[in-house]
Simulated scan of single mutants.
Amino acid sequence: MIHAVLHDSKDTVAVAVVEGIKAGTELTAWIMDEDKTIHVTAKQDIPIGHKVALQEMNVGDTVFKYGVDIGKVVAPIAVGDHAHVQNIKTKRW
């Protein structure tokens, strides 16, 4: 079962595509551009449509989604964390 998708292997987050992801779930994420899968364990509940971190990120790091810079880290993020407005902000303002 595919739980999350990402476009590019350089992406630092993947998007949850199923409902009910709970902390402790072993996720299978599909890298679309390469047609391969990777695995990560969710450390927190991840709502459908939200992001799960694929690597450790520190304050100031750039977050990549769909191969694009989507913002900067404002609070440390661990692999498997829910990556959202509590730890990522746009660079636009």
Score class of each variant (00 low, 15 high):
M1K: 10
M1I: 06
H3V: 03
D11Q: 12
D11I: 12
D11S: 10
T12K: 10
V13C: 10
A14C: 07
V15N: 03
A16S: 14
V18R: 06
V18M: 02
K22Q: 06
A23E: 07
L27D: 02
W30V: 04
W30F: 14
M32Q: 02
K36R: 15
T37F: 14
H39F: 08
A42K: 07
A42L: 08
A42N: 09
K43G: 05
Q44T: 07
Q44M: 14
P47R: 09
P47D: 14
I48N: 05
H50S: 13
H50E: 15
V52H: 08
V52F: 07
V52N: 10
E56R: 13
M57D: 02
N58K: 10
T62N: 08
T62S: 11
T62Q: 11
V63E: 11
F64G: 00
G67I: 04
G67P: 00
G67D: 01
D69V: 05
K72E: 15
K72F: 12
V74M: 06
A75V: 01
P76R: 02
P76F: 00
P76A: 13
A78M: 01
D81Y: 03
H82N: 15
V85H: 03
V85I: 15
Q86N: 13
Q86H: 13
Q86V: 04
N87D: 12
K89C: 09
K89V: 13
T90R: 07
K91T: 15
R92W: 08
